[in-house]
Design a protein around this nucleic acid. Structure first.
Lengths: 226, 226
DNA sequence: CGTCTCTTTGACAGCATTCAACGTGTGTGG
DNA sequence: CCACACACGTTGAATGCTGTCAAAGAGACG
């Protein structure tokens, strides 16, 4: 726990596949191996309440899992990047919906019995359990962020987390401000204002490309991360 | 997800063992089976950063797992009641601390290898995995509560969740207002004010015993739960 | 060049926190 | 048995952070 922030993207690279170039590429989907599908920006992969018959793995792009309250408020549970398994449920239904953040390629696996996996399911079952443990750890860190941190701290944690993945100080966010806000439990206006404020304090830089952010003073960001 | 609130206590009964009677009982601890220890109110079971060599199971009472930020803000991750397994970690260290909420009895198990459990560890490993999945599900619901709900909704969810466990409309909270606040990401003042407000609206009743709450209008509470 | 979407900025309101004081119940010691 | 201290909880007033509502800026695309 301590100085770490809630890890955002659980896998190393690829950084931000959801750029314009890829968007175009995916409009004419490549021939897909069985169980592999391509999704465009904001396409639904499954919806809250759908029977949870499969697990999914991100091959390219970024996927978000989220839930929407009756009055429209949304909470993003997690962002999943290439290599991540998602859609794992204990019960029979999906309790979040999953959508592509940008263009994305996703592979699906028929759900297996975790209590007594068949021989051919064994490897998958192991991965599923590992993913569940990892998700739990991340969810726990995310809770601290949501429950006990200010807008500035939340955004700082988000940026640091992201730059840790891509090993760069200049990051290209795959998701919109709305996604960031709904992940951090804020509004888009607060996210925007916080970023502007960080820029005024010379901690980050916001080039004209809106989704590009340059971290100028990481130690200041880390300090904000308590 | 939907109408459900973040489940607070993951096991059925016993309801609120942390009352005065039991407190007294535990002052002279019963002879403990190996691996079983009794704790008084606020006793630490393990601390954040401690090597995670064991799992723990609540036999009686309630245990909270929590983390404290540098500036003293605290977030309670979870309350654990009799029957619950806690202290499960993926890494080598505990990322939260665990303390007894009231008097509590806790049993410990040497941690086992989940990838290749020995024959005698098999049953425990299965339980650990099941607990991890359950904890993940609860953490996800808790996140929605922390990120996207108002103080009133948080408190309503908390109360409903609790009364669901004990199957009673008159509940006896084992934890203080501070614990509730730190679980819900609020301050004690806000929790107190919210409860008072609910009482004014004839939704709950607050008898003189401060930890006793009677739910007078559950459907109104559920409505607050979105 | 105009439309559409995303983002930023501003003004204002409101909810939750902060700071402070007051109750209330419990346990202790005179 | 009562006085007092202490922990816990409630209430009040004021501040402030974040949300809400509204409008303007900036790119992308046709």
């Amino acid at each position: 726990m301590q100085t770490t922030s809630a890890p955002l993207l659980s896998n190393a690279l690829p950084p931000c596949l959801a750029g314009r170039v890829l968007d175009l590429g995916f409009r004419e989907p490549p021939k897909s191996p069985a169980g592999t599908r391509s999704f465009a920006k904001d396409d639904g992969i499954y919806a809250e309440g759908d029977p949870a018959t499969h697990y999914y793995k991100v091959l390219a792009g970024v996927v978000r899992t989220s839930t929407i309250l009756k009055d429209g408020r949304r909470q993003i549970d997690s962002f999943h990047v290439a290599g991540d398994l998602f859609g794992i449920e204990r019960g029979k239904k999906h309790r979040f919906s999953a959508e592509a953040v940008g263009a994305a390629v996703v592979m699906s696996f028929r759900r297996c019995n975790l209590d007594a996996p068949s021989a051919r399911d064994w490897a998958l079952a192991t991965q599923v359990v590992a993913t569940a443990f990892e998700s739990l750890e991340r969810a726990q860190r995310h809770k601290v962020l949501l429950g006990r941190r200010s807008a500035t701290e939340k955004v700082a944690a988000f940026l640091l987390d992201f730059s840790d993945r891509v090993h760069l100080d200049s990051i290209e966010l795959p998701m919109s401000r709305i996604d960031i806000a709904d992940y951090l439990g804020l509004t888009i206006e607060t996210v925007s204002r916080t970023l502007t404020q960080l820029e005024r304090n010379a901690i980050i830089e916001l080039p004209t490309a809106r989704r590009n952010i340059v971290l100028r003073n990481k130690s200041a960001l880390k300090r904000l991360n308590s």
